[in-house]
Each structure stands twice: as C-alpha cells, then as structure tokens.
Nucleic acid binder design. Structure first.
Lengths: 217, 217
DNA sequence: TAGATTGTTAATCGATTAACAATC
DNA sequence: TAGATTGTTAATCGATTAACAATC
C-alpha cells in the first residue's frame, strides 16, 4: 500500500491532465508530455505508475483511455462518493453549493447542524438535526464527512461521526483533532495557509533576487 | 532564507501552541514539551529555531514570551495583514464572514466581483466592481489576495491582481495558474483533498492492519 | 533495423532525527 | 557539583531523479 500523500495527489493530477489530453483528441501519451502537463519529471510519472502496476508500451507510450480507467479505479472514482457535512454555517453552506464536487463524482448528501433555525429537510441537500447524524450515516453507509463547525465543537462532532461509522474526515476547524486509527483526517487550515503565504511574500520582498534552484555545478 | 513550506508551517504551529502554554500560566518551555504539543521531535524544534537564530538557555529552556515575539516577527504578525477577495460567490462570501482570520491579525478588507447585483460599498467588507480592484490595491497597498472565482475566470483575475501589485495569492480555483516569479501562489484544492481522503479511506478498509511505522529493527 | 520510450536500479538530494559536546 | 537541556554535527531516512538496459 502506498502511504505517500503526495504520490496520490499526483495520481489525481495525472487523471485530470489526461482528461484534458483526451478532450484535445489524443489517444496515446508519453510520460514526457504528461510530466510537463503536471509539472513533474517523466521519471516521476513512470515511477508512480510502476508503484501501482500500471504499464505502458515500450516506445508506444500509454493509452489514455485505459490509463484514465486505471487511475479512476485506484482513486475510487467508479462509484459516486457520498459525503456528509457537519455544520451548516457560512463555510458549510458554501461548500454544499460548490459545483465542482459533483463533476468529480463527490456528492454532499446531507448536512447536520445544532441550530434548529437551520433545519430544513426539503432542501436539495437537507439540513438535519445533529442527533440524526448517527442514524443517517448508518442507514446510508456514508464513510466520509466534512467538519465545518466552530473550533470548540469540532472534537465532539468528530467523536459522533466516528461512532456512527465515518472513517475519513476533511476538517476545517483549526485545531488538532484526536481520532482512533480507524479514521483518517485531512486538515485544511486556512489561517495557516494565509499565514504561510504572508511569510513567503515578506521573504520575497526582503530578498527578491533569491532564486530557487540557483545551483551552478 | 528558508524556503521550506513545512518548516514555516511548523513555526505557526509552535506559535499557536505557545499561546496555549502561556494561557495555562507557563513562562518557560523545553523543546521536549513544545515538540509533544505540535507532534514533532524535540530535535526538530531546536533545529527549526536554530535556522532562524532563535536560542534558548542551556538547561533553562526557552522563555515563552520572547519566543512568541520572535515567531510573530518572523511570521509578519506584528502588523495587521490586509487581504482582498476576488469573487463574492458562495465561498468568497463565506470566507469574508469567517471569524478566525481576525484572531490571527488577518483582515479581508474588500471583495471584488463582476456581478453588479453583488456590489455594495456599504457593507463592513465592501463588494466592489472588478474594475476597481487595481486602483484599490494601489491606494491601499494590499499585497495578498484570495481567488474564489469560477475556474474559467481565475487566470484573468490573477493577471489583474499581479498587474495591480498583489504578490501573494491563495487560490481556490482547481486549475494550475501561471504567474510571474514575483508572485507566490498557494493552492487550496478541495476536490483534490477529498479525492485524496477517499483513496486513503478505501486503502484503509482494504488492509485495515497496515500500520505506519511498522518497522521492527 | 535504428531510434525512441518504458521500467527499474542506483545515485542524489533534502529533510528529519539521533547523538553528544558544550554549558548552565 | 551533578544533572539536564541546548545547539549542532553526523547519520538516517525517504522521496525524487538520472541513467540505462530492455524492447517495441
């Protein structure tokens, strides 16, 4: 099993690039071109593929259709992925309406909130009471959840989710969640991303001439 | 200049952890405790500090107050960071209302949108016509921008931002933006994050006994 | 065939960690 | 002082890349 997050992110990028090549009318592709499209080396492309037993044709490159199929298979994109949302505040509501998920076969099927004023089961994505989360997840066999509740509530929500059977969480609360080994957590910390950006902008302005890969052999 | 993103992310985490220690009444801290709080090794903490010329007291640890001050200085947190938002759709509007930024000294000062129906200069965070972006950035000397416009518009918005003087961008559009070397781009790709999570959840379910750091010497 | 591309091995690179002398 | 912690060097680790034999 490949446990390198960056490697899997590259597989997603290869897949997205391949759809673009396909829409341009290509049927075959060389590791070289795919590497260029994604911004990596061709050795990286071939290495990644070989890790997953994907092989092409010596001198003939890779067939785009079969490559897309294999990548989709690895990435679990052959079935619609149902996701629940915890928290129907600003961010949660925005993500529920976010169109790009559906293109990717990801569907937010229901949201849960503690605030009765937000409940509405007749919306396209119903907003339900938090107490209904466990039952909903069990009946619908949902495995993935998104946490967009206030920091203070995040750990409790996670505990509820795990109890219900959720085993993968995308967490927007800027705190370190504790989870059992049976649940995977990916954090998106927007404060940290901005703080990081600010550092590099300041650093760039202090020494604008510093170039990465300045190495002269 | 340190160009390792992970290293800078750790500095932010150290800083956040130090505020927590401080609020618990601590004045001094050892690299060991800070490492535990952030989930890294103590050698990593000391190494990171030494990269930035931060030193403590042999046998006495580090003074929390002065450490926070130095980290804030490195991270540019001693002045309010003004940020503009491009796109006042679902996500943009949600982020404008997102409370956690202000705690971190980050303030979204204005939003810009192409849709006249969204314009309103009397809001706490005014939503202005896109054509006003350049002038606004020049007058207010804003350096950081967020892109939350539809994919198709993202590159154009970036070009406008760079022309106006923006040199750091947090991009939510799931496309590869092209920028000059004078502008730094941090991407947040939520589709990719979810796709990634789905892969690891499936992998975990296929082989639940695989453990990371399974190494027996 | 000659030439080009894959698949894989070995080399390289960079980041993390272990170890320990310095020292408070 | 004895003991504990820093600061830094060297070792380790893992990921990326270069190189090239295999082969279509």
């Amino acid at each position: 099993m490949v446990t390198n997050k960056n490697c899997i992110l590259r597989l997603s990028r290869y897949k997205n690039a391949l759809y673009r090549f396909k829409s341009l009318g290509f049927f075959k592709i060389f590791s070289d071109y795919l590497a260029d499209a994604v911004g990596v080396t061709s050795a990286q492309v071939r290495k990644d593929f070989s890790l997953f037993g994907i092989s092409g044709n010596k001198r003939g490159g890779y067939k785009i259709d079969s490559l897309i199929e294999k990548l989709n298979d690895i990435l679990g994109k052959n079935e619609l992925q149902k996701v629940i949302m915890a928290g129907a505040g600003n961010l949660g509501s925005a993500l529920i309406k976010y169109k790009n998920f559906e293109k990717e076969g990801i569907k937010i099927v229901a949201a849960f909130d503690i605030d009765p004023a937000k409940h509405n089961s007749r919306l396209p994505v119903p907003v339900l009471p938090l107490e209904d989360l466990e039952q909903y997840v069990m009946i619908n066999k949902t495995k993935i959840g998104i946490i967009s509740v206030p920091d203070i509530a995040a750990q409790h929500i996670l505990d509820v989710m795990i109890k219900a059977g959720i085993c993968g969480v995308l967490n927007f609360a800027p705190i370190q969640l504790k989870a059992s080994e049976s649940c995977i957590i990916n954090n998106v910390n927007l404060e940290l991303e901005l703080e990081n950006l600010i550092y590099f902008v300041n650093a760039l302005q202090k020494s604008p001439n510093v170039r990465i890969s300045d190495k002269i052999p």
